[in-house]
């Protein structure tokens, strides 16, 4: 795989990682995630035919559409820490994670025969997702974290698995997570049924 093509994409993923942690506006978050799915699609396109790779893009964007159908209240997005220090800490943590990712990716790539760019891109998303899961307690943030993490995994997995059915089912999992996220956003407002 040509690194001239992948390096800017990895850079874009780093920007999306950072943005997901500092942005608290719902629409902007959706845009960042949409761009992130586009990057994932571009990376997978280098391995898969267009038709199959498009599943990632369409599946991801459909998930975002499901999530976007019920915009959450602003307080359902912000982290628990005071804004300024919280952001600094999160960015520092992300920096540490990037350090870890860039240092272990070559080793993992050697051990698993997965190309370095795909491994790095995947790990960036996986760890960024994990960081979000570790920091945030709001349901919608958890769903975004899981979607990010799964995107990272799908990049790496695309190298080893070329099944259309698996790709479709993974897209369904993304969609399912989005539905659950949407449900969790609105569940408390639904009629008490117990």
């Amino acid at each position: 795989m040509d690194s001239w093509f992948t390096l800017p994409l990895i850079g874009l993923l780093m920007v999306s990682n950072l943005s997901l942690l500092v942005v608290n506006d719902w629409r902007r978050l959706m845009v960042i995630l949409a761009v992130q799915y586009l990057v994932v699609f571009s990376l997978v396109l280098s391995l898969w035919p267009l038709g199959m790779a498009a599943i990632k893009l369409i599946g991801g964007w459909m998930s975002l559409a499901v999530l976007a159908a019920h915009p959450p209240q602003p307080e359902a997005l912000s982290a628990n820490q005071p804004p300024r220090w919280g952001t600094v800490v999160r960015v520092l943590a992300l920096g540490l994670i990037w350090l870890v990712v860039f240092s272990i990716s070559p080793m993992l790539s050697d051990a698993t025969f997965i190309p370095w760019p795909m491994m790095t891109a995947g790990m960036l998303l996986v760890w960024s997702g994990l960081l979000q899961l570790g920091i945030y307690r709001q349901p919608i943030r958890v769903i975004i974290g899981l979607l990010t993490l799964l995107s990272g995994f799908e990049i790496i997995y695309a190298v080893v698995e070329f099944s259309l059915l698996v790709a479709g089912l993974l897209a369904a999992v993304n969609l399912g997570l989005a539905f659950i996220g949407s449900y969790l956003l609105t569940a408390s407002e639904m009629e008490d049924q117990t």
Partner: peptide, 9 residues
Amino acid sequence: GEGGVLWAV
């Protein structure tokens, strides 16, 4: 608590 997921990892 917060960060429990990371502690678990």
